[in-house]
Amino acid sequence: MKNSENFDVREIRRKLGMNQSQFWSKIGVTQSGGSRYESGRNIPRPVQALLRLVHIEQIDINKVKKDDVEVAEYLKATNPDLYKSLKKEAKAKRKERP
């Protein structure tokens, strides 16, 4: 199922070698809910964001703290150029990891 971010969720899950229960439980979605999304039901934006973070960006959301999110939101609102620069730098560092 392709969503508004243009990635095929079923294909990502299959490439990761995960069954629906394993894949969807990492972001708090039931297997049956995930199955509906993979079959064509629209995926809500918050779920899309979690999918991208967990399964594409490979971020362990259990390590993200509320303070991290609040700081990022503040920085994005008050200094968007610095926010974009830091985001680009972080993305480059993630790609360097083995």
Rank of each mutant, 00 (worst) to 15 (best):
M1H: 10
M1G: 13
K2L: 05
K2I: 06
N3K: 03
S4I: 05
S4H: 05
N6V: 01
F7N: 11
D8M: 03
D8E: 07
V9S: 05
V9Y: 01
I12P: 00
I12K: 14
R13D: 02
R13M: 04
R13G: 01
R14T: 02
R14V: 01
L16T: 04
Q20K: 14
F23A: 04
K26D: 07
V29K: 13
G33M: 04
G33R: 10
G34R: 06
S35L: 03
R36K: 15
Y37P: 00
E38R: 12
G40Y: 05
N42Y: 06
P46I: 04
P46K: 13
P46H: 14
L53A: 15
V54L: 08
H55D: 06
H55T: 05
E57Q: 12
E57I: 01
K63L: 10
K66L: 13
D67W: 04
V69W: 13
V69Q: 09
A72D: 03
A72C: 11
E73T: 12
E73W: 08
E73R: 15
Y74F: 08
L75V: 11
L75S: 10
K76G: 03
T78Y: 07
D81S: 14
S85K: 15
S85N: 12
S85Y: 13
L86S: 04
K88V: 00
K88D: 15
E96A: 11
